[in-house]
Design a binder for these strands. Structure first.
Lengths: 235, 235
DNA sequence: TAGTGGTCTAGACCACCCC
DNA sequence: GGGTGGTCTAGACCACTAA
């Protein structure tokens, strides 16, 4: 038998998801809910308390219990691709494929991709725009064994990330983040000054033991901010 | 008049901090605590529930309530303090306490700390050095209710982070990262040019639902890089 | 002043864990 | 079987908010 507070929780969640209780709205009082569901006030209290704890509701003594306003928390460090991230913010994503070819892995790239220096790897270079504004230069090296047809994909309609993630479940990601100034080439690609501070993110992703890709992301400092939130506790 | 469940909470926190209840230990049962403190079981329950929610205790139905094992820092983006980070690299950490005072929370600070605009909060401003080189300007606002003696700590021997983490298990962290140029004041504090790209990290940390601190970290781009690795899969 | 959440009581029954 | 937490009741008093 399910605890009876779950009936109240489920009801509230449903109303909120359907929009019957919109963000900022006040929900029925503890006493009201208790009466309607035929339980004691402490039981209604537990249902509400759980949802407050979950971040869905907030309470004000003497005033009422309210549906929390949407938190604008955008993408974290997770494997979300930039197109989704932009759409989630309500923006329009577009991109230009600048280069798409097979290259020889040299230096850092070979080391980080874990292949022999000089071996052939796939390379894509794409500029991503949010509402027409260039916000990311993505340069990606892909292990060709894992995605033999990588170069034949349609990158105008899908991002490289989406293509790879669809095929290989990403189990590990490593990031390094630093502030740099762009090279003249990079500045030109992003239409910014060489003087502008940029956020450079280097990402390596694995599927199990396999290193899938090595990616450099360059963002104009004035146009982009990274967000990440972690929950590490036991609740 | 303080609610009576706080007496039980305070007692438990004290015992845990003093080591009387060590990680992994079972604490007295709800009934026992209720009897000893002369309250009803529901009241003892609320005290325990709060500490579970805060991540300090964990419960097992039918077995008991246990002190949570301290999770050593996950190697993520986490709560590692910069002194440990530097030492882990084999470097020598030192720091200068630049400011240490009570200030009024204004604007962003009040919003992000979740306190009333104009209310008093603790503020510390510290420059951290690795092998003598300045690599981080740390500006931290602390919720005074959570650490009333914050300003009396010895920040030359401990970092603010270490002090706070020792007291409150951090369950949630939120970061935002961007590339910026330093203000003239910031440049002076870090001995860098105003032209240098800097990594600006804003971090908020929670213990359960309590917002502990709001911290701004500024790093010279040429001297610092952030690293993070996540394991996300089931593989 | 009426309504709301915050706290509290003194019981109760149950499922679960461990002995 | 005895102890533990999970849930639940039917009341209660209080501080705070809003009208």
């Amino acid at each position: 038998m399910k605890p009876s507070y779950t009936r109240i929780k489920d009801y509230l969640i449903e109303q909120i998801e359907q929009g019957a209780f919109a963000p900022g709205d006040r929900i029925p009082a503890e006493n009201t809910l208790a009466k309607e569901f035929g339980v004691s006030r402490m039981t209604a209290n537990k249902a509400i308390r759980d949802l407050v704890h979950q971040g869905m509701l907030m309470r004000r003594t003497g005033s009422g219990t309210y549906v929390v306003e949407l938190k604008a928390e955008s993408s974290l460090f997770e494997i979300k691709n930039i197109a989704d991230e932009i759409r989630a913010r309500g923006g329009v994503h577009s991109s230009d494929v600048n280069r798409l070819e097979e290259v020889r892995a040299l230096g850092d790239v070979a080391i980080f991709l874990g292949v022999q220096t000089g071996s052939r790897v796939f390379y894509s270079e794409i500029v991503h725009r949010e509402n027409g504004v260039k916000i990311q230069l993505e340069r990606r090296h892909v292990n060709p064994r894992l995605a033999p047809d990588y170069l034949e994909q349609d990158f105008e309609s899908q991002t490289p990330n989406a293509i790879l993630v669809a095929r290989y479940p990403v189990t590990d990601v490593e990031h390094s983040v630093e502030a740099v100034h762009p090279s003249p080439q990079e500045a030109a690609l992003l239409d910014i000054s060489e003087r502008e501070a940029c956020l450079k993110v280097i990402r390596r992703s694995w599927s199990g033991e396999l290193l899938i890709s090595y990616t450099q992301l360059l963002h104009p400092g004035s146009r982009y901010k990274l967000n990440a939130r972690f929950h590490t506790g036991s609740l």
